[in-house]
Nucleic acid binder design. Structure first.
Lengths: 235, 235
DNA sequence: TGTACATCAGTGAACGCGCGTTCACTGATGTAC
DNA sequence: TGTACATCAGTGAACGCGCGTTCACTGATGTAC
């Protein structure tokens, strides 16, 4: 009999629970010491266990970091997918705004996890392959919106004048692997919109708007709406 | 007789030299260990001096960090000012592109200093007031370009429909302190362009375009040119 | 259902290392007369 | 120009602390027969 969820032994259950407790405590510590200051010993101490015990759960400090990164990508990805799923499919504008607001909300609620994945890389740490899948969840949602906008015929016509050769080559490759139905010029604008979304959130979170903009929420909402309109992503 | 540059004593000169050697070594170490791992002892060791000697130059580790931050802001600010100054004053498009390319070039050449000022904040470190002045040099150049564009009459007319009340209030305040001659709608687009510029550079530097875009330079150039055009910042 | 054995979680000590900061000190460089 | 004193850079030891990782171990939980 293969182990079904109900028949999971007490040991396995305890293991799963402690694993997430370790991650939760590590997330808490990110706020105080940052990713590069994250310490297995401090996590163990706070959890009332001996430092070597943590090695039963994560073979090294970097593996714990990797788990946190994957969790962060999954958390923001899941939040975005859920928010976007509540919109009518043909309301591409509403879907775009839902994605924007959810990303910002999640970032403000989890600033250190946001910094972990969208901030400066942790020196001496190289993210393994496992992180790329979860890392593309938000972009996948965005390219779906773009594809639907194209299907609905609400995308602006391609800009006047041909794209430079190098840009065209780049976008053609991207198109093949991400959004085959979207014209290249719209794809470029999509990348810009995506970049602006995260650029804004990072600027807000990392303090660049300090003593400059107070009501970042109002500005964000309006800027994201303008973005989509200026970029011809909806009428 | 007040000390003129020529009459600066050997002691003062040695002090100035060692101060910048310490900063240079610290900058080198940023790459290996990051801002939060920066260590006075390691810097001293590499310079062949005893760790306590560094305290004659910087009263604490955080003061050294502050000096690095100010230097980084000044370096990118100076580079941008110099590049922009070589353009004809009425070529606002060329000035914008010069700023964009210089920021990106400097960031690629000094990735860790860029991360220090535009990346995730260093946990446990609060930047003192001295850093805000140098921090505004790039934005000052950008708002000058915007003001000149307005003067030349090349800014797009304000977008249709009034701005939301909260956004209008926010932009009015900004206008008063930064660019009194620029209409609010153009100011908002200016903020978006500025955010997109740094958003792009950060995405490139922090690895978000990895395995997605190869020729980031071509895309950057074209994206920044499109930005200014789409935002009506030049015809 | 009961027993023998294998698996696994957690312990505690140890290794070798690093850190920021303080302090009393030596000796060289500058300054005032 | 020469001397007495003040300033300053750099020393070396020390304080008290933290880290990642390994290892032989105990004792509890699971598994196969």
């Amino acid at each position: 009999v293969p182990t079904s969820p109900a028949s999971v032994g007490a040991r396995a259950r305890a293991r799963a629970e402690l694993t997430s407790e370790i991650k939760a405590e590590a997330r808490r510590q990110l706020a105080d010491v940052g990713a590069s200051g994250l310490s297995l010993r401090a996590v163990a101490r706070e959890l009332g266990m001996v430092s070597s015990a943590v090695y039963r759960y994560f073979p090294s400090r970097d593996d714990l970091l990797t788990a946190l990164i994957i969790d962060a990508y999954d958390a923001v990805g899941e939040a975005v997918e859920a928010a976007e799923a509540t919109c009518r499919r043909d309301d591409v504008g509403g879907r775009w705004m839902a994605v924007c607001r959810t990303v910002r909300r999640w970032a403000l609620d989890h600033p250190y996890e946001y910094g972990l994945v969208y901030g400066s890389p942790v020196p001496g740490y190289a993210a393994p392959q496992d992180t790329v899948g979860p890392g593309t969840r938000v972009t996948t949602v965005l390219s779906d919106i773009l594809a639907d906008a194209q299907l609905l015929g609400v995308l602006d016509p391609p800009e006047a004048g041909p794209l430079p050769r190098r840009v065209k080559a780049e976008l053609a490759a991207l198109r093949r692997s991400f959004a085959p139905t979207v014209p290249e010029s719209a794809l470029e604008r999509g990348i810009m919109a995506w970049t602006l979304l995260f650029g804004f959130v990072s600027f807000e979170l990392f303090g660049q708007y300090h003593s400059m903009v107070d009501d970042t929420e109002a500005l964000f909402d309006h800027a994201m709406a303008s973005t989509a309109r200026l970029f011809g992503l909806w009428p």
